[in-house]
């Protein structure tokens, strides 16, 4: 749990349509941006939307420490994200952040494999950007239009693999097809560290595969949130525990959103 949470009135510098339903928004956030680690998120109060009482959580896609900015990539799926897409540059937006425990720093000896489903690329991009030794990433989505930030990942030196369910771009299939190949192809003296964010089913499959290959893997869960800071117990997932049932509900906003696959209680 991060002890350096801040609440900051930030200024929107840019909010542009990235492609299709996806947008990229950049804030001037001098208080929050310096302490961001990969995989953390902000909890955002929508301006001019008094009817939207609750904040909305978004992964921090990128930070620029010199300009003190942070950016998010988001998909318009409901009222809140729609309202966000209509916010113009210059607007003040209140953020809580940087929240949560993100991805741990990578071990230099290991091959980093990033697995991102849909907007999961947002929470994993900083892993690539800050990695000492570039590894590979697997970006998966339903269709070509949902593949995001491919070039940005390439610029970090990471090898980029694409999968789409409909085969409209890259490998036709799912991210674990490629992950399986990568893990099978590892030299005997090389181990991998997997960093994943995406839908629950994808995380479960990635976690299972990683455990089978004795690869360490860190999974970032997007659970619906309310407070975003650990106060309300909305955002829980099952984590292994020595309780009667073998698990306990743990707050993803406070103890996560990133958990080691080994700790997650998959049903």
């Amino acid at each position: 749990m991060s002890l350096s949470n801040f609440q900051e009135d930030t200024r929107v510098l840019e909010n542009k349509n990235y492609k299709g339903d996806y947008f990229c928004i950049t804030f001037h956030a001098p208080t929050i941006s310096p302490s961001v680690t990969p995989g953390q998120f902000v909890h955002l109060r929508l301006p001019n939307s008094p009817d939207l009482l609750l904040r909305r959580p978004f992964s921090i896609y990128d930070v620029d420490t010199e300009l003190s900015t942070l950016s998010l990539i988001y998909k318009v799926i409901g009222k809140g994200s729609k309202a966000l897409s209509q916010v113009s540059a210059g607007t003040t937006v209140n953020l809580l952040g940087p929240l949560g425990n993100g991805f741990p720093p990578a071990n230099k000896e290991k091959l980093i494999i990033i697995v991102a489903g849909g907007y999961g690329c947002a929470s994993t991009f900083l892993v690539a950007k800050t990695a000492v030794n570039p590894g590979c990433c697997i970006l998966g989505a339903r269709t070509r239009d949902d593949i995001l930030v491919e070039n940005e990942f390439k610029q970090t030196g990471f090898e980029v693999n694409i999968t789409t369910n409909d085969g409209s771009y890259g490998h036709k299939g799912i991210v674990t097809d490629v992950l399986q190949q990568k893990l099978n192809g590892l030299p005997y003296n090389q181990s991998a560290s997997i960093y994943a964010c995406g839908p629950d089913a994808m995380l479960k499959a990635v976690g299972r595969l990683a455990l089978k290959h004795h690869a360490e893997s860190y999974l970032s869960f997007d659970m619906p949130m309310c407070c975003g800071v650990g106060a309300c117990f909305t955002c829980v997932i099952k984590i292994k525990a020595d309780s009667r049932d073998g698990w306990e509900y743990v707050r993803t906003c406070y103890n996560g959103p990133v958990f080691e696959a080994n700790d997650v209680f998959f049903e």
Binding site: D51, L52, L53, L54, M223, P224, C226, C232, F233, T234, C235, V236, I237, D245, E248, Y249
Partner: peptide
Amino acid sequence: HGNNTPRTSEVDFGMIN
């Protein structure tokens, strides 16, 4: 343990938990 998820929902003029 509490209840299963989802546990909260925003509604007009409030929320359900």
